[in-house]
Design a binder for these strands. Structure first.
Lengths: 244, 244
DNA sequence: AGCGTAGGGATTGTTGAACAATCCTGCAAG
DNA sequence: CTTGCAGGATTGTTCAACAATCCCTACGCT
C-alpha cells in the first residue's frame, strides 16, 4: 500500500469514527430520510406524515421533528405551516439560482489555487481521481445514478481544495438540492455521461497546474450542465411550482 | 463570567419576556437569545444551560431546544453532543474564511449587475440609500453598534440585488457570524466609521451604473475590512480556539 | 507523588402523552 | 353554484419523567 493510500484509509476510518460519535437519534433519522429523498424514494411534492414516520423510524414525534428541521436547513424539505413537511418541487428558476452559485463558488476555488503559498500537493487531487474512476466503472456497469453520485462527489472534493468549512457546507446543500432535480429527469444516461470525460479533463488540467485554464473550462462546463438540465425540464413540460 | 454580570443579563432577559407577548414561544425565545448574543450579553464561549434558561424564559425544555436549533441554523450557537450549546468562539481562520466568501459573493453580485436584460431600476437602490443615511445619523449620535448594524444591512441589501434566495440565506448567516466577531473588538468606532463613507461611495458608483468599477472598489473594501478585523484580533492577543 | 480508575452528581438526550390550534372534507342551506 | 358550518384528522406546543453521557472527585495502586 502506498503512503498516500494509507493516509486515505486513515481519513476514511476517522470519518467513520466521527459518524459514530455524533450518533443522535435525530441525525440518524435524518440520515435515513436524506437517503430516501436523494435516491428518489420520496419524490418531490410528497408529504411526510409525522405519525406514519414515527412508526417506521421508531422515534418520537419530537425527535422526528428535529430531524425535519435538520433536513429543512439542507433544503431537502420544506415546511408549510399547519400543513406538514413536503419534499420541495424545484423549478427552472431554482436551476438557474443553484447554477449561478455553483459557478461562483467552484470557479473561484479553482482560480484561487494558483496563488497558494505552499503549492497544492498532488495528493490532494487523489480523491478527485478516485471519483473519476468510480464514475467510469459505474458507467461501464450501466449504473447511471451511481455515475451521478460520483460526479457530485467530484465537485464536493473540488470545493474541498479550498479548505473552507463554510464553502463545504454550502456546497453540500447546493448539491443536495441539485439531486432533487435529477429525479424528475427521465434520461439519467444522457444527463450524466458527458461529464465523466469532462471531469477527467478538468482533473488533468489541475494536475498540470493550469489553474486559470481549468477555471475557464469549469465555467463553460457548468454553463453546459445548466443548459442540459433546463432543456430536460422543458422537454418534460415541467413548470416552476407556484410560490406560496 | 462574573456572578454580577450574569445576574444583570438575567434581568435584561426577564424584562424582554415581560415586554414581548406576541409570537410563538419558540420564536420568542430565539428572538431574545439572538439579541443577547448579537448585542454581546452572551460572550463567545459561554454555555447556555437548559434548566437555567427554561426558568428565565418561562418555556419548557423542548421549546427551548427548538429555539436552540433555530439559532444553530443561523450560526449563532453550536451544539456539542451531550455537552450542551455554546456561543461559538471564532478565530482568525474564521475571519479569513468569512471574508473570502463575502468577497466571492458580493463582488459577483455587483459584477453581475452589468449584464442584466431589464436594466436595474433605480428604485432597487433605495434600501441601500436608507441604510447609508441611518448609519450616518447613528454616527452623529455616537451610537457605533447601530452604525455596525446599518452597515451590515447595507451589505444584505446589496446581495439582495441579485434576486437569489439562496445567496440571501447564505449572506444572512455569514453576517450573523461576523457580528459575533465584532463583540470581541474593543473599538467599535475605529471598526465601523471608515465604512460609512465607503458605503456611500460604493452606492454612488452603483447609481452611476459603473458596475465594474464598483466591483473593484468593493473588492478592495472587503480586503481592507478583513485586514482591520485581523489587526484588532492580533492586538487583543486572541487566538483561534482549538478545534474539537 | 503520580497515574489510572470507579463512583456520584449534574446535565443533556429522548420519549410518550396530553392539549390547543389549524386545515381539509363533506354536507346542507340559501 | 356558492356559502357557511360541523366533524375528523393533522400539526403545533407543552410538560414531566426516564435513560444516557459527561465531568469531577476520591480512592487505590505502583
Amino acid at each position: 500500500m502506498t503512503e498516500t493510500g494509507r493516509q486515505a484509509w486513515l481519513r476514511t476510518v476517522a470519518a467513520d469514527v466521527a459518524r459514530l460519535d455524533r450518533s443522535s437519534s435525530a441525525e440518524r433519522a435524518a440520515d435515513i430520510l436524506r437517503r430516501s429523498i436523494t435516491e428518489g424514494a420520496l419524490p418531490p411534492g410528497a408529504q411526510l406524515s409525522e405519525v406514519e414516520l414515527t412508526e417506521v423510524l421508531e422515534v418520537s414525534r419530537n425527535t422526528l421533528r428535529e430531524a425535519f428541521r435538520l433536513l429543512t436547513h439542507e433544503g431537502l424539505l420544506v415546511y408549510k405551516l399547519h400543513r406538514g413537511v413536503f419534499v420541495p418541487e424545484l423549478g427552472e428558476q431554482d436551476v438557474i439560482d443553484l447554477y449561478r452559485l455553483r459557478r461562483v463558488l467552484e470557479v473561484d476555488v479553482v482560480r484561487g489555487l494558483s496563488g497558494r503559498d505552499p503549492e497544492l500537493p498532488a495528493s490532494r487531487l487523489e480523491p478527485l481521481h478516485d471519483d473519476v474512476e468510480v464514475a467510469e466503472a459505474a458507467a461501464r456497469a450501466d449504473r447511471w445514478p451511481a455515475v451521478g453520485t460520483a460526479n457530485m462527489r467530484f465537485h464536493e472534493h473540488l470545493i474541498g481544495l479550498a479548505d473552507s468549512s463554510r464553502m463545504d457546507a454550502m456546497t453540500g446543500r447546493l448539491l443536495a438540492e441539485l439531486r432533487l432535480l435529477f429525479h424528475v429527469i427521465a434520461a439519467p444516461r444522457e444527463l450524466h455521461e458527458p461529464y465523466i470525460e469532462r471531469n477527467r479533463g478538468l482533473l488533468e488540467l489541475l494536475e498540470a497546474r493550469k489553474y486559470d485554464e481549468a477555471a475557464e473550462d469549469l465555467h463553460q462546463y457548468l454553463l453546459d450542465s445548466e443548459h442540459g438540465i433546463l432543456a430536460a425540464f422543458r422537454d418534460k413540460g415541467l413548470q416552476t411550482p407556484a410560490a406560496t
